[in-house]
Design a protein around this nucleic acid. Structure first.
Lengths: 217, 217, 217, 217
DNA sequence: TATGAATGAGATTTCATTCAT
DNA sequence: AATGAATGAAATCTCATTCAT
């Protein structure tokens, strides 16, 4: 089912080395962009020879796809972890925002890479990332639906719009960790020094906006 | 005050030609990315010789900055147009979302270029775009402040968070016009075919979320 | 008789302008080398338009030849001035060394250009400068012959070798004015700070070496 | 201590290939000048691909410096060989003039390159060659000092001037091998056909000029 | 005659990919 | 399987020369 972009050779090397290579690739791709990343840099950051890279991945594009696939696996784990059926709406939003923030802090280059996949220049990789977006959409809609059902979200709220908004907000928060410019922008909004608490604050604020009871209290 | 990135020669050619070159550059940069764009492509799309490009801009990076500067001028005009002091909060949000959408539809490559400026690989251009982000922040905060003052926004709403959210939403809508992937994502949320009405729908939804009276009716 | 490398147009412009252009060309050619000199630089240093240069000289090489021709005229004037039949050998050597030094100090770029004509890369201009070298040879031989005749030069001295030596020494002194490296080398030999008196000192020393009376004292 | 201008790759290839590349570079640099030499020409003369050149030297300037460094090594060997403490002054001068002449005959392009380093346009390489000039100065001064001590040089001779003169003469002889123009000039002085014996003749002549006994016999 | 915009051939430099060892 | 030297297509940038105004 899962398409593999690497060679058989790549499967025969120690898992630790595989991981090292994919992390190096992720780092370089995020830092220098897909077009700007150099195979030689990935090789030297991973501590393998330049030539070996092409025995692991047929082409540079294949390496990119392998990195994207790894990023999706990580993302899936994160979402699954925060997909607690029992949690209330407010907690679910908080949990996702927080884990989005933390993950983006831990591997900002992966976020940078993910952001670059929305660009026209990288459209040929869109198919590789679409399942992730689709999954993300579905999950936000379920979260909102549960909120509506539990009465935490006001009855008049447009569910689809709310899900879109929550997704946009989460994406924007992640962007703030991956990009100096977006970090500056966040600080312009929330004030410098408060950025660290941004995910919680944003979660609280958006939950309040969506709930009816909040305004009546 | 305004830094110029082009040469004197560029100022001496007919305005119509200048505009043609900047639009071609914007198109190619948006389509192929800053790193991937080739000066020769810009030249041929603009109908000038390869060598001429370097008599207009000292380097490729200068051309990129000139295109960014032009994009900022356009943005500024847009924002100014929607900065009607007399309009109510709901109308202001609608107007900005709509003009963001329309502008992104008219020149999606410019949006693509703008998005790419958030990437680490293009950090050297961040200084060129920061004034725009700063301006955008300020305007959203004023819009929200007016909404609060007029009572259209519920008293309990976190103003800074609301401004951030509105900005993120506008950015996300523009992204949907520039990127096939983001367009697909929008359709996943609002349903295919309804994308065209997305800016109004999102504006209405977010205005409703922010208002207290809405939930009590 | 004299070949002209410039156009008729060049002869129709004011002499002052002609001189300005040739001096600018000489300066740029000396500073940047024949290959490295840019017509646009010559034009801007001379205060004329880039395009005009090609209405004065059909090609860059023609401009180079015109500058060489001017340099030869200057050189000829200098040599003629020091070609005083009545002077004794010692005075003649002193006079030529001194005027070589002063001229090189006044227009080091012209010397730089002259030096570059000895390089293989500029062999195509050798014919333009050969008459000057030939003239120089002839004059040194006459100076030495007069010295021999007057008894100032020892009878056993190889006249041709002496003339060659004097020429080489004069050339070396001029080089010291045109080149930072050669200036450093001169200072290594004579000590820093004494470079200014070098032409006289060298003249005195070489005259002494060539004279027999010196050894008997 | 010794600065290397080449890459690690260059050190890993067979010595024979290294030498072939440096000689080709020397040949092309001498023939076409530093500015005029094309990397592609060096590559094809050395029988390697164009791209390989840049895996040996980071830039063209680095290649130039590598060639200069090799030239200096050769030069140093030559001087060392003629630095026989036991030889009399006359033999030392003869030996250096002769080896300068022979070396210039063997690799005239290297001499051409060396000459071009005195030009303003190549001033950025002056630091690379200064140690050689400095060494040369020192050696000539020692040769003259020994001649004075042994009585072969007349007591009244200006030692520094004599050393400078010997150096200038040696340089001029080398120039005659590297440049067609300078060869023509030498023939004007000593007569055509006699050029081959020039170094010995000049050595004898200058030794005679510097010695007192010679004129009295 | 003067101007300066336009041209395009050509130079250096980069880097994915190949392949002999 | 691993290495790293070799390759050559392609990109940016330069500049002598042309030519319309």
């Amino acid at each position: 089912m899962a398409i593999r972009y690497h060679t058989a050779t790549f499967e025969n090397i120690p898992p630790e080395k595989r991981e090292r290579i994919l992390r190096a690739a992720s780092r370089v791709l995020g830092r220098d962009g897909i077009g700007g990343a150099r195979m030689a840099d990935v090789a030297s950051e991973a501590g393998v020879s330049h030539g070996s890279m092409f025995s692991y991945f047929p082409t540079k594009d294949d390496m990119v796809r392998a990195v994207i696939a790894r990023g999706m696996d990580i993302q899936a784990v994160r979402f699954a972890a925060s997909d607690d059926e029992g949690a209330c709406f407010a907690d679910a939003v908080r949990a996702v925002f927080r884990s989005a923030w933390d993950e983006a802090s831990a591997e900002p280059e992966l976020i940078s890479l993910w952001l670059s996949l929305s660009l026209a220049e990288n459209a040929r990789f869109a198919d590789a990332i679409l399942p992730l977006e689709s999954d993300s959409t579905e999950r936000w809609r379920r979260v909102v639906a549960r909120g509506k059902a539990s009465g935490e979200i006001d009855g008049g709220v447009d569910e689809r719009a709310a899900a879109y908004l929550l997704d946009a907000l989460a994406a924007q928060l992640m962007k703030s960790r991956a990009s100096g410019l977006e970090r500056a922008k966040l600080e312009l909004f929330v004030g410098s020094g408060l950025a660290e608490s941004a995910p919680d604050r944003m979660a609280d604020a958006v939950v309040a906006m969506l709930s009816s009871s909040d305004s009546s209290n």
